[in-house]
Simulated scan of single mutants.
Amino acid sequence: MGTPLGDFIRAKRDSIQPEMLGLPDHGRRRAPGLRRSDLAARAGISVEYLTRIEQGRDRNPSVAVVNALADALSLDPSERSHLRYLTKISGGECAAHTRPAPPRRDVRPSVLETLGLLEPGIAVVTNRLGDILGYTSGYAAMMSETGLLDAESPNLTRYVFTNPEARTFFTDWDDVADEQAFDLWLAPSLESSEWLTAEIAPVAGPDFTRRFNRHVVPRRGVLQLNHPSGDELRLVRETLELSSDAQQLLVFLPADEKTAQGIEQLRHRLPGRLRAIS
């Protein structure tokens, strides 16, 4: 049985062409990407050891080996961070990461107060499962008519993968889907695992499972929306990690004047106030 660490290394190796790393092309192969022997040589480890890591038979590579693999794969800082994280949950520390407290669904008063200070801007508090826990009137205006906030317990991950409207609303739906799938790796609790297995995976289907297991570290560029009102919105996202709560505060800023005007029109159409969901 494999591990998230082995899956990630194998997926990255398959995505790299030899010429990208200045290696000679040895002709046609049965599998795409970088040969296991080439990666092992670049990392300074044996092919046998790399095979054991990829297949999950060695779950505790040393820090030096993990860093060598990161160098050999030319990982960027975000990918290196994810590699270190997967090493923790795949290896000896796994037990400490499988049964922490479940994700909080209440928002601390000071965080709610911060949301209030951001009015009438666009901001939302979520946990790693995608539960929407609190938001400003600006966020409510931006999400009006999309169906996201209609549910009793809105969840962005569920919306992205199961609501057909999401594929039209998010201009770059593929990128957003990759982001939501990746973020689930950052909530490795027993409750998260049960939620993935029992609720999301069966209804989201193989496309979700494929994205979740690819370990693609998202770039999180400008968010582009096709709003049901007809407005095309482009937004820059800033994220404040609320580490002690396993939550995050996301703030959305108009990327251009046209978007700023569109948001202002939506606010006038849907006057509202800060809302917290427990």
Rank of each mutant, 00 (worst) to 15 (best):
L69M: 14
P103Q: 00
R158Y: 05
E191R: 06
P206Y: 06
D207W: 00
L240E: 04
G92T: 12
R210K: 12
Y139A: 14
R234L: 07
A177I: 14
L75N: 09
L133E: 01
E79K: 11
L75K: 08
T126V: 10
K88N: 08
R57A: 14
S244Q: 10
S74P: 01
P18D: 07
G221K: 13
P206M: 07
G116L: 09
S62E: 13
T114V: 07
I89C: 05
L118W: 11
A276N: 03
S62C: 13
S62H: 12
D106L: 04
G56A: 08
F169M: 11
F8Y: 15
A40E: 12
G138K: 07
L148P: 00
L117W: 14
L21E: 09
L225T: 03
I16V: 15
V111M: 04
E19F: 07
R234T: 01
V63E: 15
V65T: 15
R220W: 05
R80L: 13
D58R: 05
Q261A: 14
R234K: 13
P271L: 10
V160R: 04
G22M: 02
Q180P: 06
V216Q: 11
L133K: 02
A68P: 14
L253N: 06
L75F: 12
D38H: 12
N163I: 00
Y135N: 02
N67W: 10
L250S: 03
D14G: 03
S153N: 02
E145L: 03
P102W: 07
S229M: 09
A246T: 03
L225K: 01
H268M: 12
D174M: 05
H26S: 10
R211G: 04
D231Q: 11
L225Y: 10
A260E: 14
E179M: 08
A43D: 14
S278K: 05
R108M: 09
T171C: 08
L242M: 08
C94V: 05
V66N: 07
I16L: 10
L117H: 15
R108I: 07
L242N: 02
F208L: 06
E241C: 04
P4C: 03
I263F: 13
G262I: 10
R28W: 11
Q261K: 13
P154V: 06
L225D: 01
G221M: 06
L253H: 15
V124H: 00
R35F: 09
L225C: 02
E152D: 08
E232K: 10
F161C: 02
A140N: 02
E241P: 06
E194R: 03
R234Q: 14
S244L: 09
K88Y: 08
E165M: 01
L225V: 13
M1S: 10
R57F: 12
T162Y: 01
F252Y: 15
R108A: 15
K258D: 15
S189E: 06
L69W: 11
D207G: 03
W195T: 00
R104Q: 07
